[in-house]
Design a protein around this nucleic acid. Structure first.
Length: 477
RNA sequence: UCCCCAGUAGCUCAGUCGGUAGAGCAGGUGACUGUUAAUCACCGGGUCCGUGGUUCGAGUCCGCGCUGGGGAGCCA
């Protein structure tokens, strides 16, 4: 079973439940399992059934606790949901329905009790995700959030494997940046100055020369600009880490702190870039289909009936690709009213993206070559002088899951764009240097990791696919 | 930030025309049982989000605030 370190000797025959259930432990062996009680049922036949989970896989292990245990009456019959146990016993074939093996305990050690079972926040019953967010430190004990955590891990590992196998180097771009106009939303300030009484300049402004870095600094909104420098040296690189946006966004698709994957490929054009995006999504979806069949089966059963077939379909069929101009023509002829009128030059609204991805093509769609006015300064100008080599991958149900472009590698064109937008060039001198010394065509994109997990699992809110979500007015835990 | 909706037991919710509160689940006790969303009986459990107002009387009507959800914008 993937994710299980088979062959790794654990002390005192301690086994993960995933290992036990995968058939790697032969019947009759005496083993130790450690985990938490999900439910307990007592039988007058002289035993209790304890459903134990340890997070190593979706499924639980049934522990049979016979009345002969010295602490049966004093402890076992008082176990409630959430109690931590260390159980020693013999792995036997189950004589009941619902499981093939079970652990016949000869020793049950309670590592941790539930202080007050009545008010323990995680009951063995369905909870709303809104409620679970309010107990984010305990929600990984639930079926759904536990499954999300394993799928998230599988996707992260698959991403690393995908790039590693293709010769991409993982570059650890900085979290703290001095660039206050990276072109992707508001930034969080980073400062060690006294907030009540900050040092002032003669003009009365805050004197950031006295701040920790000797200048004003922020949390990064993207590793792209930095990773371009490594791209034009190592050819194939990517970043994978947290990123921060101080936007007051209150939606199921936005977080103030989220993870992003940003590959950057030298000597690549927009179409190579789109090929890479498509191959990446297919690879990681295939991986999660193979490695987390248990968790996906749960999502298909309880969260989103179509999630497995959706992944299989994405893996097996080519993405639709179309130019922005073609998308506009399709929208103009769409037999439906839009709240926002359609015309060339406008930015696509959610309703338009949804129509295209969900109704018109019904699977992921790559839109390319947008008007330069609605895209960032670093995107490469096309020969028509009115569009740039940008691309967005739109996923049905999620919307924009990837945004990327071929980068402007020509210094004169880049400078013209910076001037046009009134951006101070000197702040970008190091970035402009990349165009002065051995500049080369290159392209890259950003994949929103939480949106990807959301798409895979069918969990409709990104706040439920990241362990501790940070959103406006919410940074608990 | 804007629009709409919601906030009642540990959780999910009901609460009629304004008359001082109820169910299911969870918890406790017992019965029954190789059980597995177990079943059955009984029991405990409430600052009705906060605040101000209308009223003889407010969970219910009105104002303000807080929190959450859905949608929009921004984007990944």
């Amino acid at each position: 079973m993937p994710g299980v370190a088979s062959g790794v000797k654990e002390p005192m025959s301690i086994h993960a439940i995933a290992t036990v259930l995968s058939g790697q432990v032969s019947l009759g062996r005496r083993i130790v399992v450690q985990g938490w009680v999900r439910t307990r049922r007592d039988s007058k036949a002289g035993l209790s059934f304890i459903t134990l989970h340890d997070g190593s896989c979706f499924d639980t292990l049934q522990v049979i606790a016979p009345v002969e245990l010295p602490n049966y009456a004093s402890e076992v019959t008082h176990l409630t949901t959430g109690c931590a146990l260390r159980v020693t016993g013999e792995l036997v074939a189950s004589s009941g329905k619902g499981q093939t093996v079970e652990l016949r305990a000869d020793h049950v050690e309670v590592a941790g009790w539930i202080e007050d079972p009545e008010t323990y926040p995680i009951a063995p019953k369905p909870h709303s995700f809104e409620y679970l967010r309010s107990v984010a430190h305990l929600r990984p004990r639930t079926n759904s959030i536990g499954a999300v955590a394993r799928v998230r891990h599988a996707l992260a590992q698959a991403i690393q494997r995908f790039f590693h196998e293709r010769g991409y180097f993982w570059v650890h771009t900085p979290i703290i940046t001095a660039s206050d106009c990276e072109g992707a939303g508001a930034l969080f300030q980073v400062s060690t100055l006294d907030r009540v009484n900050p040092p002032r300049t003669a003009e009365g402004h805050i004197d950031f020369e006295q701040d920790f870095f000797g200048r004003e600094t922020f949390l990064t909104v993207s590793g792209q600009l930095n990773v371009e420098a490594y791209c034009l040296a190592l050819s194939k690189v990517y970043t994978f880490g947290p990123t921060f946006r101080a936007e007051n966004s209150n939606t199921s698709r936005h977080l103030a702190e989220f993870w992003m994957v940003e590959p950057e490929t030298a000597f690549a054009d927009l179409h190579t870039n789109a090929d890479l995006a498509e191959a990446l999504l297919k690879f990681i979806f295939q991986a999660v289909l193979e490695e987390r069949t248990d968790d996906l089966a749960f999502f298909a059963q309880r969260i989103d009936k179509t999630c497995i077939q959706r992944l299989e379909q994405v893996v097996s069929s080519p993405f639709e690709r179309m130019d922005y101009a073609e998308a506009i023509r399709i929208l103009e002829h769409a037999n439906r009213p839009f709240a926002f009128p359609v015309q060339w030059g406008m930015d696509l609204q959610s309703e338009h993206e949804r129509y295209l991805a969900e109704d018109y093509v019904g699977r992921p769609l790559i839109l390319m070559n947008y008007p330069k006015e609605i895209k960032s300064f670093y995107m490469r100008m096309n020969d028509d002088n009115r569009t740039v080599a940008a691309m967005d991958v739109l996923a049905p149900g999620i919307g924009e899951i990837i945004g990327g472009s071929q980068r402007e590698e020509r210094l004169e064109v880049l400078d013209a764009r910076l001037d046009e937008l009134g951006i101070n060039k000197t702040a970008y001198n190091w970035y402009r240097d990349l165009r002065r010394y051995g500049s080369a065509p290159h392209a890259g994109f950003g994949l929103g990791f939480e949106r990807t997990v959301s798409y895979v699992t069918g969990m409709s809110n990104v706040r439920d696919v990241i362990p501790f979500p940070r959103t406006p007015r919410s940074a608990d835990f």
